[in-house]
Design a protein around this nucleic acid. Structure first.
Ligand SMILES: [Mn+2]
Ligand SMILES: [Mn+2]
Ligand SMILES: [Mn+2]
Ligand SMILES: [Mn+2]
Lengths: 152, 152
DNA sequence: TGAAAAATATAGCCACGGCTACATCAATGG
DNA sequence: CCATTGATGTAGCCGTGGCTATATTTTTCA
């Protein structure tokens, strides 16, 4: 495969800039999305979400989890009473559901394309946040098509 | 679509933590990847890569681009002489080629799945960095399969 | 050729998201 | 029932990646 062309420089700089801006924007939301999803999971599984559990499952020290929870509160996605658990606001819960569903769709797509399941999970944890509504719809349509084929 | 199950809490915390750690690791490399790709593109298109052009195309102020170039130098991916352009080391050039090729594959896959081209470019700019070798191979295989079908 | 303009560098600010060390609160059990 | 222990909060450090303002260098052109 010889000389890949620099397609990037063939578009207006401002348009390219807006693509990178979008990626940065998404990135700043990614951590919040993972946290609300995890908080929702923990509440569903154990009735509560403790900071220590968040930290353990995120693989960070607990002050880091505390700080992120503070940001979730600032953004109106979670509430927390000192020395008690963390809870999702309605908005946080809705976001958690969307994120969880999207996560599954991304994993399912990767698996459908032949990626080993555990590998799919690894990649999906980062990919998911950059998948827009439109792309998600395309993933779902593809999965439905594949399902229809295997049923016939 | 009723109650998405909290699959996340059904795996060992340490395994879940390692997935998030991987996503963080990838993220810390993403900006460097975009810069080396862009530097390579600019050199191919204009014979040089100036900090002002990097800043304009990345959509950031030029001190931000300067700082990132400093990091590229520290990481052995680029060189730069003051008030002159930015250049890629051999390692940087190799990385740029890999990143450029992967970017195209991701965009092509999204388009093949029915995502409108400009939309595919937007999402791919973030997705690409989280696509591992294995997943990339799956994407390429799928694209080859589709091509074979349309040729028959 | 030298003054103005453009490009680049530098300084220093901020928010985020890591961390360690330490303080404080809550839960348990001897 | 209170002392210990575990969980949580707080303080303060660091690197990254944004920014603005200012200094310096290079380029341009009158
Ligand atoms: Mn994720
Ligand atoms: Mn996820
Ligand atoms: Mn990118
Ligand atoms: Mn790219």
């Amino acid at each position: 495969m010889p000389d890949p062309k620099p397609v990037h420089t063939q578009i207006p700089p401002s348009q390219q800039a807006s693509r990178f801006a979008r990626a940065r924007e998404v990135q700043s939301r990614a951590l919040l999305e993972d946290y609300v999803e995890l908080i929702g999971d923990l509440i569903a599984a154990h009735g509560e979400a403790r900071v220590a559990d968040l930290a353990e499952r995120m693989g960070v020290a607990h002050p880091t989890a505390t700080k992120t929870v503070a940001r979730l509160k600032r953004e109106g996605l979670a509430t927390a009473r000192p020395y008690r658990g963390v809870f999702l606001t309605d908005e946080g819960a809705r976001l958690a559901d969307r994120v969880r569903s999207r996560h599954r769709t991304v994993v399912d797509l990767l698996i459908a394309l032949g990626v080993p399941p555990e590998h799919a999970e690894l990649d999906a944890e980062g990919i998911e946040h950059h998948v827009s509504r439109r792309t998600l719809q395309a993933f779902e349509d593809f999965l439905v098509r594949g399902q229809a084929r295997s049923e016939s």
